[in-house]
Computed example of a mutant assay.
Amino acid sequence: MSSNPPEANLVHFIQLRGSSTVMKVMQRIGLKYMDENPNIRLPLLGGGTAMGYKSALDGTADIGMASGQIPQNIQLWASKHKLAIDEVSIATDGIAAIVNPANPINDLSLEQLHDIFTGSVTNWNALGKFSGAINVVSHDPQLGTYEPWKRQVAGKDHITLKAKVVNGLDSLMQAVSSDPLAIGYVGTTFLGKGKVKALAIDGFLPTYTNIKQQHYPIRNQLQLLAKSSAHNEVHNFIAYCLDPNKGQMMIKEMGLVPAAGE
């Protein structure tokens, strides 16, 4: 008969929900963590950064996943109900401007990117090399990548109303890979997923070194969200994600800049 106390054999579920960008990281770390901790299960659900914040705040997830700042409407709702969570940065990602490989343009300035995404420049001939109406493809505002892109590229201006808004990374990659006149944006971990080309911005490609050294200008914090009062298994998993020899090492292997440094 086993001498272990009954609770030692219990299976603990840690529900994660939110950003698809962070979910990709959690899939990698989570598999390793469950191998090392057979009594832990880590079910993952998407839904976007807004859902990550809401789920962590209302308790429908143990850990929220976010790749952008908290949406204002959820922040107001949380304040009204006196709800709070801890935001833990696990990595820095770059957000790449992507075009179809048939597009001859390889480099844009941040100012040119602003003018494209706010609708001031609407034809590729304004940027040289070839002509055609620019087809802007943007994420749904509820998805985390939208907020840091809008903040760092459009600034106080709005993303053009003529943009094709898609709900999901697969749809965005498909829209750009099938249209020589399209331009969109994705986190760098998704660059190998479709036939698209990442542009250099102000002379810098979104490589690991350029993001780490802050030469590439469009960057994003990937975060885990949890209540301070969460059970120990939640805090243990977050600590694992922050361990330089465990989660942070896997994050670096994925091409992301670890939050814990090197």
Score class of each variant (00 low, 15 high):
254 M>Y: 09
158 H>A: 14
110 L>G: 10
137 V>Y: 06
115 D>P: 10
196 V>D: 01
176 V>A: 06
143 L>P: 02
202 D>K: 01
164 K>F: 03
35 D>K: 12
99 V>M: 08
183 I>T: 04
226 A>E: 00
252 K>W: 00
5 P>G: 09
236 N>Q: 14
242 L>A: 02
10 L>K: 12
65 M>R: 06
246 K>V: 00
24 K>I: 00
118 T>Y: 07
143 L>D: 08
203 G>T: 05
41 R>G: 10
96 A>V: 08
23 M>T: 07
250 M>Q: 15
128 G>S: 08
72 Q>K: 14
20 S>D: 12
132 G>P: 13
156 K>T: 11
18 G>H: 07
53 Y>T: 01
210 N>Q: 07
113 L>M: 13
89 S>H: 07
37 N>W: 05
129 K>F: 06
138 S>Q: 05
66 A>M: 03
207 T>H: 01
143 L>Y: 10
32 K>A: 15
262 E>Y: 03
91 A>G: 10
103 N>L: 02
200 A>M: 09
238 I>Y: 05
29 I>D: 09
53 Y>Q: 00
253 E>Q: 15
148 P>N: 03
26 M>V: 00
130 F>K: 04
151 R>E: 15
189 T>N: 08
128 G>P: 11
89 S>R: 13
31 L>H: 11
232 N>V: 12
248 Q>E: 12
120 S>W: 01
91 A>W: 04
35 D>L: 13
28 R>I: 04
42 L>K: 11
95 I>E: 14
240 Y>E: 04
222 L>N: 13
112 Q>P: 10
56 A>D: 09
103 N>V: 00
196 V>R: 09
119 G>Q: 10
183 I>M: 03
238 I>R: 14
54 K>S: 10
147 E>V: 01
209 T>S: 15
98 I>S: 00
236 N>Y: 05
